[in-house]
Computed example of a mutant assay.
Amino acid sequence: MSPPPLVVVAGPTATGKSDLGVALAVELGGEVINADASQLYRGMDIGTAKLRPAERAGVPHHLLDVLDVTQTASVAAYQRRAREIIERLRAAGRTPVLVGGSGLYIQSVLDDLEFPGTDPALRARLEAELAERGPQAMHARLAELDPAAAEAVLPTNGRRIVRALEVIALTGKPFRARLPEPGPPRYDAVLLAVDRDTAELDARIARRVARMFAAGLVDEVRGLLPAGLADGPTASRALGYQQVLAELPGGDMARAAVDTVVGTRRFVRRQRSWFRRDKRYTWLDGAAPDLRERALAVVRGRAGSPA
């Protein structure tokens, strides 16, 4: 039976998606496409838990290390590039395996999302307001206008808050209202989501953050400062990097680690809420000893579906 045209491995941070994605790509004769916004950036390796080349089992990975830290990550640009790669892999008889936890990025590939333009004057006003009032106050405003959007956007992510408010002002509709109701996914994809028990996942996050700081996250951040990390509109807000930057040059890195754990746990709850709303996913327990076999059973159950 032929493999499906696209396999998606999604879900919250630290559940084991990356390893499962590689295992499926090996079994299906496929290649991995990154769907983690922070892993788009060159040099942001430790804090994003980017798989090292030796951990990729020889599987080609796409859309890793494609942006400088001063560049803005764009969902619209990601949608275009990811779809181009999917089409190319399919034409070559390879199975694309889209892996990550950035829900909007994944949905942009699966569904017919259209991205409204921008109004430079409006954007400038909102950014000035952000600089004056801070992201928390702007997030509270977003929560009044569009509670669903506010739930999906971190209160510290000023760039995304500004973008959501801009779209609301331009379209007169809630930001989330522009997302289509999930129908049959593009490419007739098989959608898998990995999760774990909340207490277990909280413990995994704490261990993961400890390993990142022990492995040199602070030095990685320092090394990216000459490249412009502190001024990067998207990269500087990534979990771990944001917390370390807040403590440099001589702050308390133990506090940065604690703040990273707290921020990551909050982010996980937002990720879980996002993916749980999409009923097309088949959920898998990341702690299951036969996780790979369970995932393959789902994929093989859909094998041979028309594209």
Score class of each variant (00 low, 15 high):
residue 216 G to M: 01
residue 194 V to C: 05
residue 215 A to L: 11
residue 249 P to Q: 00
residue 213 F to L: 10
residue 216 G to N: 03
residue 207 R to Y: 12
residue 166 E to S: 09
residue 232 G to T: 05
residue 210 A to L: 11
residue 224 L to P: 06
residue 216 G to Q: 02
residue 241 Y to L: 08
residue 222 R to L: 11
residue 173 K to I: 00
residue 213 F to R: 09
residue 204 R to I: 11
residue 184 P to S: 12
residue 217 L to M: 09
residue 166 E to R: 03
residue 219 D to E: 15
residue 236 S to A: 13
residue 168 I to E: 04
residue 216 G to E: 02
residue 216 G to V: 02
residue 245 L to F: 03
residue 231 D to R: 10
residue 235 A to Q: 08
residue 253 M to L: 11
residue 178 R to C: 13
residue 230 A to S: 10
residue 175 F to I: 07
residue 250 G to C: 05
residue 186 R to S: 13
residue 214 A to L: 03
residue 235 A to G: 08
residue 175 F to A: 09
residue 221 V to W: 01
residue 195 D to A: 14
residue 205 I to F: 06
residue 186 R to F: 08
residue 224 L to Y: 05
residue 235 A to L: 06
residue 249 P to M: 00
residue 237 R to H: 13
residue 253 M to A: 05
residue 207 R to P: 01
residue 177 A to P: 13
residue 222 R to I: 09
residue 234 T to K: 02
residue 230 A to Y: 04
residue 208 R to C: 14
residue 243 Q to L: 07
residue 194 V to Q: 02
residue 214 A to E: 14
residue 233 P to K: 01
residue 229 L to S: 08
residue 168 I to F: 12
residue 236 S to I: 09
residue 214 A to R: 12
residue 201 L to N: 15
residue 220 E to S: 06
residue 219 D to P: 09
residue 223 G to K: 02
residue 255 R to C: 05
residue 190 V to E: 00
residue 255 R to T: 03
residue 177 A to H: 08
residue 220 E to V: 05
residue 204 R to E: 15
residue 208 R to I: 08
residue 217 L to A: 10
residue 211 R to Y: 04
residue 242 Q to R: 12
residue 216 G to L: 01
residue 236 S to Y: 07
residue 220 E to R: 05
residue 251 G to R: 01
residue 207 R to Q: 15
residue 211 R to L: 12
residue 170 L to P: 04
residue 256 A to N: 06
residue 198 T to W: 11
residue 203 A to H: 07
residue 230 A to N: 03
residue 224 L to K: 04
residue 218 V to T: 06
residue 239 L to H: 13
residue 215 A to K: 10
residue 214 A to F: 02
residue 195 D to L: 05
residue 181 E to D: 13
residue 226 P to L: 00
residue 201 L to Y: 08
residue 226 P to K: 00
residue 211 R to E: 15
residue 198 T to H: 08
residue 218 V to Q: 04
residue 179 L to P: 05
